[in-house]
């Protein structure tokens, strides 16, 4: 079984847990004491990943330290429909958003760590870079909608959506509001509606759709 070095509050780790859940892959989770223990900076984990970051995914001889690579690996093994198809434009869009997700991590992720777990950083810069990234994502989704597509790279969810979703959904943790972005909210709802979706603290599951209200004939 694949082994994930995991932290329950890490959006990057959640990407991998979510992808695994959506594609039906079972993971062996190894909890890392990121906070308050800083275990990811300890000798055991630095030996696996000199960058000192988590997640880390082990599968036999394969060792991955970049979450986007983990998403691609899980999809390729279990559900290739989550990867780009043969269309050149779609393939490029998947790569574009996978790379873009790093900006979300650096900006919104940094703001979240600063505001929540007291990690150092210039909060004003992190938040404004996060807002710039959200505006770009909102525009990308609006343009996709004009092409008749509901997700970032296609009319079906791909690894690109999973790479971008967690840091966006958790932006309010870092003091960045999602109120100005209707396309992002619709996209978030579409992702949270997927069969097999799992939540993490701060990302709530969609409330069960309630039955239609009984409208009384002749009522006001």
């Amino acid at each position: 079984m694949m082994k994930l070095y995991d932290y329950i509050l890490s959006p990057s780790c959640y990407k991998v847990r979510l992808m695994a859940a959506l594609t039906g892959v079972k993971l062996d989770l190894r909890a890392v004491d990121f906070h308050p223990g800083l275990e990811h900076r300890g000798p055991e984990l630095l030996a696996l990943n000199p960058a000192g970051s988590i997640p880390i995914l082990e599968d036999g001889d394969l060792l991955l330290t970049e979450s986007s690579a983990m998403l691609v690996y899980l999809a390729a093994k279990a559900a290739p429909g989550w990867l780009a198809g043969s269309d050149a434009e779609e393939a490029a869009r998947v790569q574009q958003w996978l790379s873009f997700s790093g900006r979300l991590t650096a900006s919104l992720g940094g703001a979240r760590l600063h505001e929540m777990l007291l990690r150092p950083g210039d909060i004003g810069v992190l938040q404004s870079q996060g807002i710039a990234a959200l505006r770009e994502l909102e525009l990308g989704l609006v343009e996709q909608a004009e092409r008749g597509k509901r997700f970032l790279a296609a009319d079906r969810p791909t690894v690109a959506d999973i790479a971008c979703f967690p840091y966006v959904a958790l932006a309010p943790d870092g003091g960045v509001s999602l109120d100005p972005y209707p396309a992002i909210r619709l996209w978030s709802r579409a992702l949270r509606s997927l069969k097999g979706f799992i939540e993490m603290p701060g990302i709530h599951r969609l409330h069960e759709l309630k039955p239609e209200p009984q409208l009384e004939a002749g009522g006001a």
Binding site: I8, L9, A31, D33, D173, P201, G202
Partner: peptide, 16 residues
């Protein structure tokens, strides 16, 4: 670590 994460999970659900 699991004890810590259980409680952090609960509290982070409250935070928002």
């Amino acid at each position: 670590t699991d004890l810590i994460h259980f409680q952090q999970t609960i509290f982070l659900q409250d935070r928002s």
